[in-house]
Simulated scan of single mutants.
Amino acid sequence: MASKDLSTPFTLYSSTYSICAIMVQMTYELRGSPPEGRPDMKIDRKIIDISHKGREQLSEFYLLNVNPEGVVPVLVNDKVLGKPMPESVDISLYIADWYPSLLPSRHKQVIEELLDELHQISYKLLTFGTQTTFPTTSVAWLREQSQRPDISDAYRKALKYKESKISVWADNHSEEDLAEAENRTRAFCAKIVALMEKRPDEKDKLTYIFGPEPTVLDAHVLPFLGRVYEKERLYLLPPTLVEWHKQFRETDLWKRAVPAGTTLPPFA
């Protein structure tokens, strides 16, 4: 990182109800202090309305200038990054590069492996189940918009690309897929509990997966547990994680990262 660029504020395109956006915001909230000589990372959060009424992530500006995938989160800083940075894991690891305590070397390998495993789980299936019409409705809207005569060719192409991406999800949400997502959730949670059992005993203290200091893994696991908890899929969560998550829901940290109080979108 070039020191002359580091004071430039970043823009985080986010959404109140995007679990991946919440994971990035949680990472930032858990960041701690930067190394000596490096300024604090300044992030301005720009909320994008991803509801049926808003669909700001599908606007011409967003698809052509921020993220052609039409999703959040995206981190932007022309002077430091050059081009927009999508993907919650990439953004979180970038923040962790700025704040090394989020990714301690002794835990780096297991954190990266578990982040990858966590993001292989279908949050969409755990959230919407198999009977949702949300993807199909979005495909219909994209198809209608792309046929408008008053839009640019570039925007039309972007809309059709996004339609092709959503169509895959709309055509693929079986009970078998849901069962796989649930099995992956159970297996992942078991690994988190196993790590927590190795922590030093800290009675009456709020501790994290590896101990008293938070990591980027905590930042992604806590919102994920929130989503599963709020969907009342408690049969997927070990009691240890339920209680741990419930403790964090009462903290100012949770309230800053999840200002709506819930990770669930109103249409879930």
Rank of each mutant, 00 (worst) to 15 (best):
Y235K: 09
F210Q: 06
K255G: 04
E230K: 04
E232V: 12
L241C: 01
L222I: 15
L236C: 08
K246V: 12
G211D: 08
K246H: 02
K255R: 14
R233W: 10
Q247F: 09
T240G: 01
P212Y: 03
E250K: 15
K231P: 00
L253H: 03
E232S: 14
L241K: 04
V228P: 09
Y208F: 15
K255A: 11
V242P: 02
Y229R: 13
L206H: 12
D201R: 15
P200R: 14
P223T: 11
K255E: 04
G211M: 09
E243S: 13
R233P: 03
W244M: 10
A257C: 03
E250V: 09
E202K: 11
Y208W: 15
P212V: 08
K203A: 14
E230G: 00
H245S: 05
E250C: 05
D218F: 05
H220A: 02
F210R: 12
L237A: 05
P238D: 01
L253I: 13
F210S: 11
K203M: 08
K203W: 09
G261D: 02
P223R: 10
V242F: 01
E232Y: 03
T207A: 09
A257R: 01
H220Q: 03
G211R: 09
V216A: 03
P200Y: 12
P212A: 10
D218G: 09
Y235E: 12
P238Q: 08
L236V: 01
Y208D: 06
K205T: 12
L222F: 12
D204C: 02
P214E: 08
E232G: 00
E230I: 00
D252N: 13
D201N: 14
W254N: 02
P200K: 15
Q247V: 07
V216I: 15
K203I: 11
P259L: 11
E202Y: 15
L206A: 14
T215G: 03
L225I: 09
L222H: 03
I209D: 08
R233A: 11
P214Q: 10
L222D: 01
H220F: 11
R256A: 14
L237S: 02
A260D: 11
R256T: 14
R249W: 02
L217Y: 07
T251K: 08
E232H: 14
T240Y: 00
I209G: 03
V221W: 04
E202V: 09
R233I: 07
R227N: 12
L234A: 06
L217G: 07
A257Y: 01
D218A: 10
R233D: 01
L206I: 13
E243G: 00
V228C: 10
P223I: 06
A260G: 06
F210K: 09
K205V: 12
K205N: 13
L253K: 05
V228S: 07
E232D: 14
T251R: 05
T240E: 14
V216E: 10
L217M: 04
E243F: 08
D252G: 11
R227L: 14
Y229W: 13
R227H: 05
D218W: 08
L206R: 15
T215E: 06
E230W: 00
V258N: 04
V221H: 10
G261Y: 11
